[in-house]
Simulated assay, not measured.
Amino acid sequence: MAVVAVALLDAWLWWNRYLSGWGAVALFLAVEAALAGAYVWSALRRGIRPLPVRILLHEVRAITDLGRLLKGRVVVPEGAVPLHARTRWWHLPAMFTVAIVIEIIVIELLVPWPWLRLLLFAGSLYSIPLLWGYLAGRIVHPHYLGEDLVLREGRQEILRVPATDIVEVREVRGFAAERGGVGKQLVLGGPEGTNVEIRLADGRSVALWLDEG
């Protein structure tokens, strides 16, 4: 609600020529920064991790994972074997990147105010590495096999079982592209679906995609 009030006041001041375009942007950012700072300080005093802090942490992790991807590093415990699922993972971020580039071109052609074009350009440009970083998390935090079999989606651990509980591993082609499951079956699909089924000693099974080799 405060954001809307500040934006309306800012627009009124700009419309009545009390502020220039750059002045309106500077005032809006200054007031929002002050409000955000007060909110974060108050939340931290109460022992709560506020939304802006959580968002910042997610963005830092995404950029960190993108750096790991570019360096070819994965995050698994020492001695564990990574179980990669990288096939066609880049298709989705590549398509979104093309869409963002088209959006930038359209904004440059249609938005008449240079200051607004600059803000939108910066935001769109910043979203590209964030997008790749979020999706890179699944590549640099793969499933792995050590003393335990650990299945993950990015940084989130989905299943951990002792390696000795694995009864059978076989090739079974499926086409589920998302996480799901029915009864004792867990499905961790990827862009290409699933190609491996793991059976466990307790009767559960997991269908997932693993790269060949």
Score class of each variant (00 low, 15 high):
25 V>Y: 08
133 G>Q: 00
130 L>Q: 01
192 E>S: 11
98 V>G: 05
56 L>R: 01
69 L>V: 09
11 A>D: 09
3 V>G: 07
155 R>G: 05
93 P>N: 00
5 A>E: 12
148 D>P: 02
173 R>H: 11
16 N>P: 03
200 L>C: 09
43 A>D: 02
122 A>K: 04
34 A>K: 14
146 G>Q: 09
95 M>G: 11
121 F>N: 04
205 S>I: 14
129 P>D: 03
63 I>N: 00
76 V>N: 04
164 T>L: 01
140 V>H: 05
206 V>C: 13
96 F>I: 08
85 A>N: 07
193 G>Y: 01
65 D>G: 00
81 V>N: 03
11 A>F: 15
86 R>S: 09
95 M>R: 07
20 S>D: 14
159 L>N: 03
39 Y>I: 06
130 L>V: 05
119 L>D: 02
100 I>F: 08
177 A>N: 07
148 D>F: 06
132 W>Q: 00
191 P>H: 05
25 V>S: 04
199 R>A: 07
48 I>G: 04
58 H>M: 10
171 E>H: 13
48 I>A: 06
115 W>M: 02
52 P>T: 10
23 G>C: 10
66 L>A: 02
86 R>D: 09
24 A>R: 13
185 Q>T: 15
152 R>D: 01
71 K>M: 13
64 T>K: 11
50 P>M: 11
178 E>S: 12
143 H>R: 02
74 V>G: 12
207 A>D: 08
20 S>P: 11
187 V>R: 03
103 E>V: 00
27 L>I: 15
66 L>Q: 05
157 E>Q: 13
163 A>M: 07
156 Q>K: 12
120 L>E: 08
198 I>R: 07
182 V>T: 13
20 S>A: 10
193 G>H: 05
137 G>Y: 02
31 V>P: 11
97 T>H: 01
57 L>R: 12
39 Y>P: 02
182 V>D: 08
118 L>F: 10
79 G>A: 08
184 K>D: 10
47 G>K: 09
174 G>T: 09
142 P>I: 04
40 V>R: 07
12 W>T: 10
33 A>V: 15
42 S>Y: 12
112 P>W: 07
41 W>F: 06
106 V>Y: 07
199 R>F: 06
102 I>D: 00
193 G>S: 10
66 L>I: 11
44 L>N: 09
30 A>I: 15
152 R>K: 10
133 G>Y: 02
75 V>P: 00
72 G>W: 12
39 Y>S: 05
42 S>E: 07
160 R>Q: 11
127 S>M: 15
4 V>D: 06
212 E>T: 05
63 I>H: 07
190 G>Y: 13
171 E>N: 11
96 F>V: 04
49 R>T: 15
121 F>K: 09
205 S>R: 15
28 F>C: 07
73 R>T: 04
53 V>T: 08
